[in-house]
Design a protein around this nucleic acid. Structure first.
Lengths: 200, 200
DNA sequence: CTCTTAAGATACTGCTAGTAGCTTAAGAGG
DNA sequence: CCTCTTAAGCTACTAGCAGTATCTTAAGAG
């Protein structure tokens, strides 16, 4: 090797440290250019390593990006809103979901999901981890409302619990990246979720 | 040109005839290999022409495929089911929607939608044409049920009318290509659509 | 000190979107 | 029937990217 460059003499990273550096580079590329535009060469360059080093750890671009996506998720569990009314709680939860879906993280997730459709294996991976993540919050909110007498037993099903987020997800599927307006959120809550839960 | 091949001497197609042949070739490629795997060379070869001839008509692969997708849609309008009950009508409509979404045409539409996300222009094109296509059927079904006294006025909104198909679309977004089961369809109808429409 | 493992560098294959430039047939207008 | 314009057809090209192969060399274990 020639020493006529200005490069700093760095120790050669190995194992976990290197893996971490690659994932970090992938996360940065994902946030900056998104999944579609991310290239393996780009990640390798940013991580200061070479493409084949990446392929020794992940079998494909998609696999690397899924790992990077996981790596960029917020860690701690978040609290369940408690506004005192079912409507308020639902709006809070739905607004939070909308914020996430319209954030870079959400955009990346949607690009990943779209690209993975043909691979049922990875599809399950992603879906089970993230899509059903918020169910417990909705069930909690419904249970509290039930104890207040606001909702009936028929509402305590996963289908009803997730209906608002499911409809929100549909908006993104139809409209693309543009964030969903507050009007649509309240429409979903007031025309679908609350009436459905409040029945009887 | 050399005549030592076995090729039939064909007249050179032009204008509308050629365009039709290209679209037909694209439709066949789409149904056989899907949007992701479709290549411009493949379409050109199948149409018996060259790539640049295609590019003289459509600016990109996506544009060609959207045109081809339109070209393969069923032409005549279909009838609104009338089973005598809201539940029966809803199941019929939802089953029909599910059949379409799980068919090759549906798969192609989803691949197209996924690939177009970053292009709001083409996004609107596709969405307005197809996604909102069935709304009138749902409104008709609801109106008939309302005249029978089965549903209240609050249900006669686009949001409520499309809620079942919206939820179905969400299933496809989450699960990928696999067709949605009858159980899920009835769950959507019985736990969401009918209760929502029947309120008061 | 030595030996195994894996990081790093580089070059390569194969595929595809999209472009360029030339040749030649179709068909319109005289 | 002749000519001229237009566009079809052909071939070759660029550029970018996923994934692979090979060789050299540093890290770290024993």
């Amino acid at each position: 090797m020639s020493w006529d460059t200005l490069s700093i003499v760095t120790t050669r990273r190995r194992g976990a440290a290197l893996e971490e550096a690659i994932l970090q580079a992938a996360v940065e590329e994902l946030t900056e250019v998104g999944y579609r535009e991310l290239t393996m060469d780009g990640v390798a360059a940013r991580a200061g390593t070479a493409k084949n080093v990446i392929y020794r750890r992940w079998p494909s671009r998609a696999a690397l990006c899924i790992a990077a996506y996981r790596h960029m998720l917020p860690t701690g569990p978040d609290s369940t809103p408690d506004t005192g009314s079912l409507r308020g709680d639902a709006l809070a939860l739905l607004t939070r979901a909308n914020d996430r879906m319209s954030s870079p993280v959400g955009r990346i997730l949607r690009q990943l999901l779209a690209d993975i459709q043909s691979d049922p294996e990875r599809m399950r991976e992603l879906r089970d981890q993230v899509a059903r993540a918020g169910v417990s919050h909705w069930l909690t909110v419904l249970a509290r409302a039930a104890s207040r007498g606001e909702v009936g037993q028929q509402a305590l099903t996963p289908r009803v619990a997730t209906v608002a987020v499911d409809l929100l997800r549909n908006e993104y599927a139809l409209n693309g990246a543009t964030a969903v307006s507050t009007e649509v959120l309240t429409e979903i809550v007031d025309q679908v979720f609350v009436p459905l839960a409040s029945r009887d």
